[in-house]
């Protein structure tokens, strides 16, 4: 249940990037890796609660799922594994390193243009 600290970090990252335009931030898109132990509903709930303490009161949070990506350690091919065992579609190797799907990432934000 560390979604509150993640939501606080999202708000911090966006506030910093918006630098003075915080009140014009609209949609914030955040991707949640499938292997990040994060509950989307809890993250949304925490975001809504915590944004009131910031200047980002007009911002909404949109979550996207980030699939797992594996890099084959034998042939270097990057692939999206389906079921276990993870199998490289090129060389059929089962040895891999996870390259994506572990993190929560602030992908982008929308800022309403000023007049």
């Amino acid at each position: 249940m560390h979604e509150a600290s993640l939501a606080a970090n999202v708000l911090k990252i966006v506030s910093r990037a918006a630098a003075g335009k915080e009140s014009r931030v609209r949609q914030i898109t955040v991707s949640v890796g499938q292997l990040a132990g994060v509950m989307p509903d809890a993250l949304l709930f925490a975001f809504e609660a915590l944004k009131k303490q910031t200047l980002l009161t007009s911002a909404t949070l949109k979550l996207e799922k980030e699939p797992v990506t594996a890099c084959c350690e034998d042939c270097g091919h990057e692939y999206q594994p389906q079921a276990f065992p993870y199998t490289c579609p090129i060389c059929q190797s089962h040895v891999f390193r996870i390259t994506n799907g572990e993190a929560v990432t602030v992908k982008r934000m929308e800022i309403k243009k000023g007049d």
Binding site: L6, K107, R108, K112
Partner: peptide
Amino acid sequence: HHVVEEIDLDCVVQEE
């Protein structure tokens, strides 16, 4: 698109 500017951030939340 005229009203809203989209800004790419790509910041990992757990980076710190």
